[in-house]
């Protein structure tokens, strides 16, 4: 973490387009390189935590986990309700409305639970981590940490990274439970289905591997949110000011969302097609 940030901005105006494209690609690659270095440093300092580690971690677990819970639950319950309505009508065309329980449970646990939770967290936590670290950067607090012989990755990134990696699966599990409950309530109250039958269907559809898939996704999304947010916060130039922090904050949320989608596709491909999990 040094101050050497030049974001490849020195692209001359009068160069041919091909060279500009090349420069852009090089800028992306060097950005990727810096993210790689951050990941490496995070892994390194994960096992060399700062002295007051526990209190730092607990604080982050609170912010990432406890404070996000209401929104996550709300998102979860509505996701389940929407799925039940959609599922009921779609399946009715195949005279298979009785499979709603199955449909809701599978969709929630393997796909939408982890995904919606990660989206909420990227918007809520990712942006706030970037804003916080970015502000610390432009007010020289990160340099101050460094000079005081405390590596910023060790003191700032590691607790946030761990909090995201721990809390994403936990929140996803909460979201899943509420999603299925939302689907249940909709099926029973709106469509007059048998509740016990709905739950039986849901139970039959869920394998240990389904839960595992969801949790693997949740952990991966947690890593993405933490690393993207910290990287964006750190890479604001010291001269960036409040404007730099603002830009980085929106940038962080958008970049996280995109990477989460890409990662989701990639994981689906690997887990289902290559490892043939159910």
């Amino acid at each position: 973490m040094t101050n050497d940030v030049d974001n490849g901005k020195d692209i001359a105006e009068n160069e041919p387009p091909s060279s500009r494209v090349l420069q852009q690609i090089l800028a992306w690659l060097s950005e990727l390189g810096r993210v790689g270095i951050l990941l490496y440093q995070t892994a390194y300092y994960l096992f060399r935590p700062p002295t007051n580690y526990i209190s730092l971690l607990i604080k982050q677990l609170g912010t990432v986990g406890v404070d996000s819970l209401p929104v996550v639950l709300l998102t979860g319950i509505f996701t389940g309700m929407v799925l039940a309505v959609q599922g009921y009508h779609q399946l009715a065309e195949m005279s298979a409305s009785s499979w709603v329980g199955n449909f809701v449970a599978v969709s929630v646990i393997k796909e939408l639970g982890p995904m919606m939770t990660a989206f909420v967290l990227a918007g809520r936590i990712g942006a706030s981590i970037t804003a916080e670290l970015g502000t610390m950067r432009v007010t020289e607090q990160i340099d101050a940490l460094h000079v005081m012989a405390t590596h910023p990755v060790r003191y700032l990134v590691v607790p946030r990274f761990l909090a995201c990696v721990i809390m994403l699966p936990v929140l996803t599990t909460f979201s899943n439970v509420f999603g299925i409950l939302g689907g249940y309530a909709t099926a029973v109250w709106l469509f007059n289905m048998n509740g016990a039958y709905f739950l039986k269907q849901a139970q039959l559809a869920i394998f240990t591997s389904s839960v595992l898939i969801g949790l693997i996704k949740a952990v991966s999304f947690g890593i993405i949110i933490a690393i993207v947010a910290c990287h964006r916060g750190f890479s604001i130039p010291t001269t960036g000011g409040a404007e730099g922090v603002g830009k980085a904050t929106t940038g962080s949320a958008v970049q996280s969302l995109i990477l989460i989608l890409v990662m989701d596709f990639f994981l689906n491909y690997v887990l289902y097609t290559l490892l043939e999990l159910k």
């Binding site: 700062p50 002295t51 007010t139 005081m148 405390t150």
Partner: peptide, 28 residues
């Protein structure tokens, strides 16, 4: 650890009190 630095803006940790700022290196 054998060096001190006063930054142009002060660079105090604004999430901590004055006392916590000063004892930071002692804690670490």
């Amino acid at each position: 650890k054998r060096i001190g630095m006063l930054f142009q803006s002060g660079a105090l940790f604004d999430s901590m009190t004055v006392g916590e700022n000063i004892e930071f290196m002692l804690v670490q």
